[in-house]
Amino acid sequence: MSFGKYFISLTIVLLFLGVLDLAIGSTYIPLDEILSALIGKGTSVPSWEHIVLGFRLPRIATALFVGMGLSVSGLLMQVLFRNPLAGPYVLGVSTGASLGVALAVLAGISFGIGWMSSWMTVAAATLGSIIVFSVVLFASFRVRDSMTLLIFGLMLGMATGGIVAVLQFFSKAEDIQIYLMWTFGSLGGVAGEQLFILIIFVIIGLAISLLLIKPLNILLIGEDYGKSLGVNIRNTRILIILATCLMAGAITAFCGPIGFIGIAVPHITRLVFPSSNHKILLPGSMILGAAVLLFCDIVSQLPGTQEVLPINAVTALFGAPLVIWLILRKGNIRRTIG
């Protein structure tokens, strides 16, 4: 079966959403002015150029890479754990990041202002996810089957969540609010060097995933068959975890724990591209993930108003019903994994 047409039409949709997202925001900027800002000709109102190039364009780039990274992470986890409910965060990477941020914010480590503060959050989140990631990776060397690893990751996440709850309990209301704002997730505010670092991490994760196409296909018939087909299961598992943690960890560090995308997009991908071949499913998840997150970003701007909704609220509010509808229409989702 050839999926070329799907990919071409999805790319057109993606371009359309990108342009739409550029045009939408709390300040109205005409389309031709946006275009002239993009090609470097400047705008009639000088601040417009700054809005387009300094805010909207980085936000769209962030949405693209976050969408791709989270979707592919979710796909990897669902295949590894043979579980349709697995997502990028099942290994506790995001709760690790949350713990880092909570420690930084709630345990009263003083924050600078402006860029200092944003780097502090990133550093704390990164440190938190690296710690959890190391524990999970260590466990994956020792644990024989993936199901044990899944439970290990979930429990680790819950325990970490417990520490965050204790910290919250003993914290000042203002600090809790800062922490809560972080958990809402945000695609804005990542620009310049931060955006560059985020993109590098996601690209490395995606590159590792592409090298995993063959083992991922084989994992669809289980680890025993995989081994008998010449796949080194342990190395595969470690590479899958590495790719997921690089992408999900970096994304959580810069944008907060953005939910839904990682679990839902792989399912949407399997429904759009009815194939079991990850040569199709991986790029499919990338393009759909980017498109879905761009769409959610557009909605979160609440076009026509001055308000911006937290991205997490939008991904869940629009995503969950969409997935329920897809599943009810297509039937048994359990079967799609194992």
Partner: peptide
């Protein structure tokens, strides 16, 4: 065996060539 529901018979057999 826990074979993914997305696999067709042909795709399953193709895995043998991997």
């Amino acid at each position: 065996y826990a074979i993914s529901g997305l696999l067709t018979v042909e795709e399953l057999v193709q895995l043998g060539r991997y």
